[in-house]
């Protein structure tokens, strides 16, 4: 992780703040590919670990991210909004490849809901610079709550379509939009999980090949909120403390599980779960694989001390 500092805090809307983040020693940070995000760690003992898309790379070599204040959040976004000031220190990861724009598409369709607009700003700029066709469909409650509204309108006139659901004469974005495109179109879907699921399904139904549909689902960081849990195996039942690593426990109990990365990235330590609820903390397994009862014990674990996780080994 890189030591960084908050260089500027800008109010974008009543609920969205933009933060400029620079290297602590003033060296320019590496440039980013459109669609990329950072993992940030901020607060006392760097408690709040959150991924945020990079909105912009400034001339002095800083990144800008935008954070929505959500009431339901476990505290990360509230912390950013209420506590973070210019000059505060934080740690950031190197940029990560979130949604690299399609290489082969001749037309790009961006669908954004609310704060999901952040990765799209860089991608729209990328298209414009290369003269590649694109359009943006952006839904927000009201014009006042629409982050980057004037920036988008000024920079991409003619390509932006806004849908304000709470304004009088409300317009609505609907999945029917996706049926009008020619082959060679890529679609990017960025919004809350329900929006992403709905539009991903709609895009596949409209004939977009899997690889032409881009969405990003962030999962919770792997260290926060770990609970003790019980698990049972053919050898017996055991209890895991909140600080204990599930894979280590299984190895300790004599189960021979191949493992490699210990960080939920390589998939080697995968095991089968026959019952109980899993607290998945990897980004490796697909939603379908998790549904089928697979898990990676190197980062994932159980959730309950009353209903054991039943492991088949």
């Amino acid at each position: 992780m890189i030591s960084a500092v908050i260089k500027e805090v800008i109010c974008e809307t009543a609920t969205v703040k933009r933060f400029r983040i620079g290297d602590i020693k003033g060296r320019p940070l590496v440039k980013f590919t459109p669609g990329a995000h950072l993992v940030t760690e901020i607060g006392s003992s760097k408690k709040w670990v959150r991924p945020y898309s990079i909105v912009r790379y400034t001339r002095d070599g800083s990144y800008e991210i935008a954070v929505l204040k959500t009431e339901r959040s476990r505290g990360g976004s509230r912390y950013w909004h209420e506590k973070v000031r210019k000059g505060d220190g934080l740690k950031i990861s190197l940029p990560r490849n979130g949604m690299k724009p399609s290489f082969s598409a001749r037309h790009h369709v961006f669908l954004a809901a609310g704060i999901g607009i952040t990765p799209i700003i860089g991608m729209a700029r990328w298209c414009k610079e290369r003269g590649i066709g694109f359009e943006l469909h952006y839904t927000a409650r009201t014009k006042a709550q629409c982050a980057f509204y004037s920036h988008l309108k000024t920079n991409f006139p003619g390509q932006c379509h806004f849908y304000f659901t709470r304004e009088t004469a409300a317009e609505r974005l609907t999945p029917e939009l996706l049926y009008q495109y020619r082959t060679g179109t890529a679609v990017y879907i960025c919004g809350p999980p329900a929006f992403n699921h709905q539009y991903k399904a709609a895009a596949l139904a409209a004939g977009f090949p899997d690889r032409a549909v881009y969405t990003e689902m962030f999962v919770p960081p792997s260290s926060e909120g770990r609970k003790p849990f019980v698990f049972s195996t053919s050898h017996g039942s055991y209890r895991a403390g909140a600080e204990e690593n599930f894979l280590d426990l299984l190895l300790e109990k004599g189960f021979q599980i191949p493992y490699s990365c210990r960080s939920g990235q390589c998939g080697t330590c995968e095991i089968s779960v026959k019952g109980g609820e899993v607290d998945h903390r990897d980004q490796f397994l697909t939603a379908e694989e998790k549904m089928e009862g697979r898990m990676l014990p190197c980062v994932s674990r159980g959730k309950s001390i009353t209903f054991p996780l039943i492991i088949e080994l």
Binding site: M1, S93, L94, P95, R96, N97, C261, S263, Q265, C266, G267, Q283, F284
Partner: peptide
């Protein structure tokens, strides 16, 4: 497919 997924998930912070 798993190795492909692993490669796609590779981060600059952690080489392998």
């Amino acid at each position: 497919r798993r190795i492909l997924r692993f490669l796609r998930g590779l981060h600059a912070d952690t080489p392998y």
